[in-house]
Amino acid sequence: MSRKRSRNIFIATCITPAIMLFALFMVVPTFEVFRMSLYNWGGLSGNKTFIGFNNFKVLWNDMRFIQSFQNSVLLIVLVAVLTIVVAIFFASVLTKEKVFATNFFRIVFYIPNILSVVIIAGIFSAVYNPRTGLLNSILGLLNLEQLQRQWLGNQDIVIYSLAGALVWQAIGYYMVMYMSGMASIPESYYEAASLEGAGKFKQFSAITLPLIWNNLRTTLTFYIISTINLSFLLVTAMTGGGPDGSTEVFLSYMYSQAYSNSTYGYGMAIGVVVFTFSFVLAAVVSRITKREVLEF
């Protein structure tokens, strides 16, 4: 057997199983999402008729979809802004300041990221419980009874309660990301700036922020993708979209239409819209935040 032939056999043996299975369980279902969105496909009987873009037309006037759209966009913006501010603050504190027990804080802050979404749903159900919840009882102890709320029962604030849980979950992860960016900035830059009389805030805005800008840009895409995904998982586990649709998000609405309601075609049309939206949003955000990369 020639060397060339044995090389080809080796290559084929190594990559064929992975590629076949990847195509079967990831690529085919992805195409299915797009194909099914063009069908009226309902029930387990598998009746399907081609209806073109009709599902999308219905979607356009579906008030529950529009509400889920608003909720998702609100969550993406809130979670991204809050997490960026908090995570960058703690990342710069833990890398730049001589803090006692740095490691302890780093380890603790990352804990929420290793917990299952179901656990986070359980924890926050306990925190937000109106009667015996941790949050309301702390507010009671601090004599702030007027701030006590039905955190998960009040339609006007439940979406912010969800945002709180998502930020709680995300801080540690992004903090570690930003820390790795900051750790590679040479200490001498800060020393020079300090000699020039630049204060901490000036140092941050003139050195740290520009030098981690690319790092920060990458995470913006992560915020979009992961908030869409995690808000779905959290909503499904915690509120089921309630009360009265006030926490319905993109994919939770898709899942309830496609799986629970068995209107697969309609559900997949939602999937197509969400997928396109997140892709376009990520591209736009990445475009408008583009700056020249600074070398150091």
Partner: peptide
């Protein structure tokens, strides 16, 4: 494949 999110394709996998 890095961009394919499991949440989108769960239902098609189920139907398959």
């Amino acid at each position: 494949g890095l961009f394919i999110n499991v949440s989108y394709i769960t239902v098609p996998i189920f139907l398959m």
